[in-house]
Amino acid sequence: MYSQEITVRTGDSPTVADLTDSAQRFLAGAGRVDGLLHVFVPHATAGVAILETGAGSDDDLLAALDELLPRDDRWRHRHGSPGHGRDHVLPALVPPYATVPVLDGRLALGTWQSICLVDTNIDNPVRTVRFSLLPA
């Protein structure tokens, strides 16, 4: 197994950060292999999604999460900024991992698919992402 961690700065507002180029750079170090790329975020308040970016879908995802998980005082988990409890529910909807096929050393994503870090937690501006290649 081949593995690497990267650091992603997400800032102080909810964000969808495209990890696709970083994932492909990681794979370049492994050569022309087939297998599975596992992407994992070791945080209790972030997730990984496969979606289209740049055409509004990333903003639509954040808007949908705001509707499903409002940033208000309804949450029992109350440390951090107001409404932070919702950030701890996020990984149940956007899991902290994704697995993508790799063919000949390249991500086997669909035309409009990207691997994205989803982070609604405004209290933690820096995230770790772990890439692991499981060869076939």
Rank of each mutant, 00 (worst) to 15 (best):
78 R>M: 07
20 T>D: 09
36 L>W: 03
132 S>W: 11
42 P>K: 06
66 D>N: 14
65 L>C: 11
17 A>R: 09
102 V>Q: 03
17 A>Q: 10
32 R>C: 11
77 H>Y: 06
71 R>K: 12
19 L>S: 05
127 R>N: 02
42 P>V: 00
52 E>S: 11
83 G>Y: 06
88 H>F: 03
17 A>I: 15
28 A>C: 14
48 V>D: 09
8 V>A: 01
78 R>H: 12
130 R>T: 03
1 M>S: 13
103 L>R: 14
6 I>M: 07
113 Q>P: 08
89 V>D: 10
77 H>A: 09
98 A>E: 10
52 E>Y: 08
59 D>N: 13
133 L>I: 04
56 G>A: 15
76 R>I: 12
34 D>T: 06
68 L>P: 04
51 L>A: 10
128 T>K: 10
68 L>T: 08
111 T>D: 14
116 C>P: 06
20 T>Y: 04
129 V>T: 00
82 P>Y: 02
105 G>C: 06
116 C>M: 08
100 V>L: 01
20 T>S: 02
13 S>I: 15
83 G>I: 06
74 R>K: 09
18 D>F: 02
133 L>G: 03
68 L>A: 06
78 R>D: 14
35 G>T: 04
99 T>G: 12
27 L>W: 08
73 D>L: 05
118 V>G: 00
8 V>F: 01
87 D>S: 10
119 D>H: 05
103 L>K: 11
49 A>R: 02
70 P>K: 09
128 T>F: 00
14 P>T: 05
117 L>D: 04
41 V>R: 00
51 L>T: 09
98 A>N: 10
9 R>F: 11
51 L>R: 05
128 T>Y: 03
24 Q>W: 11
18 D>R: 00
120 T>G: 02
